[in-house]
């Protein structure tokens, strides 16, 4: 690393680390060499490409471009999350609504309260963090609900047979799914600073910002992510029952 700037030479030097992983994989016969290489190359290409796009958008700093960028990230995230639960009818729309609602609300509140300025430099990275995290939580919540709907079929049908409405019959599995999906977010919030130094803060410190300023940003980020992921998980639980059950209150079967 030369001064405060990372160069492509630095990136190439870091490839030594990938090589180390490749050697380990080969020696241990893990058969991961190909995947490791592809992943490393993809990460470099994708991030470089997005770096140019962000640079362009930051230079232009036009509202429409920012919105388009956010929409593109959201669409990709929704596709990724929906792929995990493609057995559920309308999974893509469910994810678009869940991620869209959670991200728009959280980002909107941040901007309206003046926590972050409206400029592309702030909205795009913060929006990216929100969308990425809501994607993970929404995905785990939905997947867990679908899996439990299969595993707990006996209980759910016993509840239906006693006259429970679908939402009541699925209450237990929905509650467990949200708790499970939220655990990593809550745990990492609890252990923040002790177990690991989170990304946004690390980045700011590396970029030379005063540590306390970096800490304030990180606290804001954590609060924002709790709100966003909570909203996303809740939206998934609102939308799932109508997809798990038929209009006649019968539990669908899913091939997972």
């Amino acid at each position: 690393m030369s001064g405060d700037q990372f160069t492509y030479v630095d990136v190439a030097a870091a490839l030594v680390l990938v090589a180390l992983a490749l050697v380990l994989s080969w020696r241990q016969r893990l058969d991961l060499e190909r995947d490791l290489l592809v992943a490393s190359v993809r990460a470099f290409v994708q991030l470089t490409a997005i770096g140019f796009v962000i640079a362009l958008i930051l230079d232009a700093d036009r509202g429409l471009w920012v919105l388009l960028m956010l929409a593109a990230m959201l669409t990709f995230a929704a596709f990724t999350a929906a792929r995990n639960v493609r057995v559920v009818p309308g999974a893509l729309w469910l994810m678009v609504v869940a991620l869209g609602l959670a991200s728009a609300t959280t980002l909107g509140v941040m901007v309206v309260l003046g926590i972050i300025p409206t400029g592309a430099r702030y909205v795009i990275p913060v929006g990216g963090m929100i969308i990425g995290n809501t994607m993970n939580v929404a995905s785990v919540t939905a997947l867990r609900i679908v899996q439990d709907a299969g595993a707990q079929r006996g209980r759910i049908e016993a509840a239906l047979a006693l006259g429970a409405e679908p939402r009541a019959a699925a209450h237990g599995i929905i509650r467990r799914a949200v708790r499970l999906a939220m655990v990593p977010v809550i745990d990492s919030t609890k252990t923040m600073g002790i177990v690991f130094l989170p990304g946004a803060m690390t980045g700011m410190i590396l970029a030379g910002a005063p540590p306390l300023e970096a800490v304030r940003l990180q606290v804001v980020v954590m609060f924002m992510l709790i709100a966003a992921t909570g909203l996303a998980a809740t939206t998934v639980t609102w939308l799932m029952p109508s997809r798990l059950f038929t209009p006649h209150q019968q539990l669908r079967r899913f091939d997972t």
Partner: peptide, 14 residues
């Protein structure tokens, strides 16, 4: 389902 109850072969307990 309230008026016509069904008891399953291996009932699942809540």
């Amino acid at each position: 389902r309230r008026r016509v109850g069904l008891v399953f072969q291996r009932p699942a307990m809540f």
